[in-house]
């Protein structure tokens, strides 16, 4: 972060690349990253880590979908990490409805779950990502499944319900998985990229 402190700076500054690296250094302190941490995670949950990106603004660790619960349990319980707080669960639909753009997108359609963890003791954050198929067994309409972490962080209770409601991911082992923001008889998952707004809902015009 540029700590120039100059009041005379004329306008918002776009940081040059070199400075951006400095920003990352500072952020490195705030984020749980580095080879040592990854090694202990790999040792605790073999095969759990699928990939990492430590160069991103928020460095993240990609976890195998099957290992989500184990990794989270370890991150929560292990004294060296102690991620006692789950801040957010996000589902991102990587799907391009426009076939022309889809060809250039550079990724296969998939769903991505992003977990933002936070340790109140160490005051560090961690980003976990996991990739899911858009539909279970490629059957459209059948949402994919992943293990729930509601037993680890109670935050996940409502967050998983919201992800299920809006993006269509079934969390196996969730105590009470039902829609939370949309009405219970709502159809479809609004935050999917191919979602079509219904034309009619109980006589209310949709568009």
């Amino acid at each position: 972060m540029v700590r120039s402190g100059s009041c005379e700076a004329a306008a918002s500054v776009r940081l040059p690349t070199g400075v951006a690296c400095e920003t990352q250094q500072v952020m490195g302190d705030k984020n749980m990253r580095g080879p040592a941490f990854l090694e202990s995670l790999e040792a605790a949950v073999p095969g759990g880590v699928v990939g990492t990106n430590l160069e991103a603004i928020d460095p993240w660790v990609e976890v195998a979908p099957a290992a989500v619960a184990d990794v989270c349990r370890w991150l929560h319980d292990s004294p060296e990490t102690g991620f006692d707080s789950l801040q957010c669960i996000t589902a991102v639909d990587w799907f391009e409805p426009d076939p022309k753009k889809a060809a250039k997108a550079g990724w296969d359609p998939h769903l991505e779950l992003v977990y933002h963890l936070w340790s109140t003791r160490a005051r560090v954050s961690l980003v976990l990502k996991t990739k899911l198929p858009r539909w279970k067994d490629d059957q459209p309409g059948v949402p994919p499944e992943v293990a729930s972490v509601a037993g680890i962080w109670r935050t996940a209770d409502w967050h998983e319900r919201e992800v299920y409601d809006l993006s269509g991911v079934v969390f196996v082992g969730h105590p009470d998985l039902r829609r939370i923001l949309c009405p219970e008889d709502w159809e479809g998952f609004p935050l999917r990229k191919d979602y079509e707004m219904p034309l009619d809902y109980h006589g209310i015009r949709g568009r």
Binding site: C7, D58, V127
Partner: peptide
């Protein structure tokens, strides 16, 4: 009140944002 310079302009409404993801609380 100690700052003398201008406030600076906000970005354009349709300013492109780079690829990548961020989370900020």
């Amino acid at each position: 009140s100690a700052c003398k310079g201008p406030l600076g302009e906000p970005v354009k409404v349709a300013e492109k944002i780079p690829a990548g993801d961020v989370y900020l609380e």
